[in-house]
Amino acid sequence: MTSPTRDRRATTFFLGFLVVALLVAGGLSYFASGDPDGLDTVTLTGCQLDDEGEPLSGSCIANSAEDHALADSPFADYAVGGGEGTVGIAGVVGVLVTLAVAGGLFWVLRRRDPQ
């Protein structure tokens, strides 16, 4: 059977894993590069960009991109209400929401061992 010691060790490991995720999303995210990622670099190829990094002129794949249907939502673009310097808060919210959704789904899906 699962011993209390093992339970505690597992809990410690899981808590540590969560703390790392929160530190990455809540702190390290401030140091993330703001340059376009691999896909965006490709879709922007052929266009001149404005100061915001949006295509200004030329012919590129990103010209066909449509605005996001939820672009006005409270956490859009990993900011809280569009505020500067809020990426860490958005990141922490994202980690907790992701954990709740994934943890909840996997807990429901899990195999129950016969007692």
Partner: peptide
């Protein structure tokens, strides 16, 4: 493994935010 999978998902979300040059 179910809680582990939940945490791994949250971790991937976190690390996806970190764009590196």
């Amino acid at each position: 493994t179910a809680p582990m999978a939940g945490l791994v998902t949250a971790f991937v979300f976190a690390v996806q935010m970190i764009n590196f040059p």
